[in-house]
Amino acid sequence: MAAPAIDPNAGLDAEPILRVEHLTMRFGGLVAVNDLSFDVARGQITALIGPNGAGKTTVFNCITGFYKPSSGRIVLMSDGALPGPAIDALTDTSMRSRRVGDGGIYLLERMPDSEIAAQARVARTFQNIRLFTGMTVLENLIVAQHNWLNRASGYSLLGLVGAKSFRDAEARAVEIAVAWLDRIGLKGRADDPAGALPYGDQRRLEIVRAMCTGPVLLCLDEPAAGLNPRESAELNELLLSIRDSNGTSLLLIEHDMSVVMEISDHIIVLEYGKKISDGTPEYIKNDPKVIAAYLGVEDEEVDDAAAELDQ
């Protein structure tokens, strides 16, 4: 058997921001995610790939609190917190999070969805775009900044009397929104309803809306689905700029290999809810098990496929 002579973790020495350990999600008798463990590196783009029904979206839903995992631990380490005994200590208590040094550790499997977004600062997009279609593009981005704006409005009391502090905060929120719109070239459409945008723009708007919450980890569920090649090139650029200039870590589910291979630093491959491979794009590209999963060949044929590839 010709083992690929590539180091699966070449260049991957970054510390993790998210650690998923022994995650299992059952729906009745169906095991959608089975004892899955992986890390998402801080400041990098990690891709989660796999055939249809592999359980990718289910993993996302567990991370972002929309599903409560059947078992397993999901730890988010923000602002420089590192894996260590503090996490195990926290797990033994019934608490959900704790501050460690400058950062915080969050046990996401214990938190409800809106708290994960608000406190652990994990933002996400959806496989089927979920914009507020009847609200304008700008309104979508202002709603995303709800939590701090609502505090700035004195829980509406200051806002109701039109206090200057609130007006300033709102102007700041608009500034942030406009800066993001500029980055995706939609500033001119700020006052159009989000539902009237072309599909590709809606996808990017949803990503930018998630970014307006100021996340440390951004989870994207098939951001390139339904995009044409030009749009998906623009998407690549946007994602790389989010990683590089905002320092946000990204976890993305994607079927479009041109996107995955081009921008990911690290890829995890899922099949039937189990991890079958984990490494750099170079390694994944050459992993016979991945090739077999994607080509749909039987297990015995994997070696043959690998042999063929070697030639």
Binding site: F66, D113, R130, F132, I142, H146, N147, L160, A210, T213
Partner: peptide, 30 residues
């Protein structure tokens, strides 16, 4: 009061809630 509230974060959150509750939760809105 209604017109005022509509232009405040809380009013926008109401309308966003009417539009899509799941998206609201993903944005950290309680």
């Amino acid at each position: 009061v209604t017109i005022r509230l509509r232009r405040l974060p809380i009013g926008r959150a109401w309308e966003a809630l009417r539009e899509d509750e799941i998206a609201c939760r993903s944005l950290g809105i309680d």
